[in-house]
Amino acid sequence: MALSTHTTSSGYLLPSIHSAPPFFTQQPNSSTQAVVTEHWTRIILGYARHRRLFFLRIEDAEVAGGDWDEVFRNERINRRLLPDHLQTILASMAGKSQAVYEPPKQTRAVLLYWRRPEEWAEVLHTWVSSTGHMNTIMTFYEITDPPVESPLSGIPEVLLRKAIAILAKTGRAQMIGAADGDGVRFFASGGK
């Protein structure tokens, strides 16, 4: 019985370890569990990037029918990732800055960093520059829901704010408070 890779219906290639029955059980040996956690982390971040998913909740492993079924359930071998196991994995990811608890001060939902906020900041700045929006004031809505799909389409506001804050530190962006929602202005380079 060879363990093989599997392509999900959404086109994501799962590694062969995903077909191994014990991969779905939390391992009592801590160094073995570290290996398991590492593989799960890679699968979760890869899948999130593949489907542009930003949030992951413990419920996603509890009830079927969510975005994560393809990954957390393997019907071919009748195994699924249990909520407690997922919680351990999320704790490890949060510890390694591969995700943050969002909202903070709870441990049942995370914002996934398949791109780190620093990388998002660069993506954002490049996009603003290539679409000719430098020096103009943009609303968050214009960034998260542009008429032409962009690398930033659908980015959660909390992540967008983090990215803008990083750009603001180097003088490449400025937050502008307004009554009907916040806006932001971008600059080509720092030093203004």
Partner: peptide, 26 residues
């Protein structure tokens, strides 16, 4: 750390998997 534990087997509570004896394709 020579084997992994599987607690989701239908017949047995605890199934052990010896990883070196498993056939990995990739």
């Amino acid at each position: 750390g020579l084997c992994w534990l599987d607690e989701q087997d239908k017949q047995h509570d605890r199934v052990y998997w010896v990883t070196s004896a498993m056939q990995w394709e990739a």
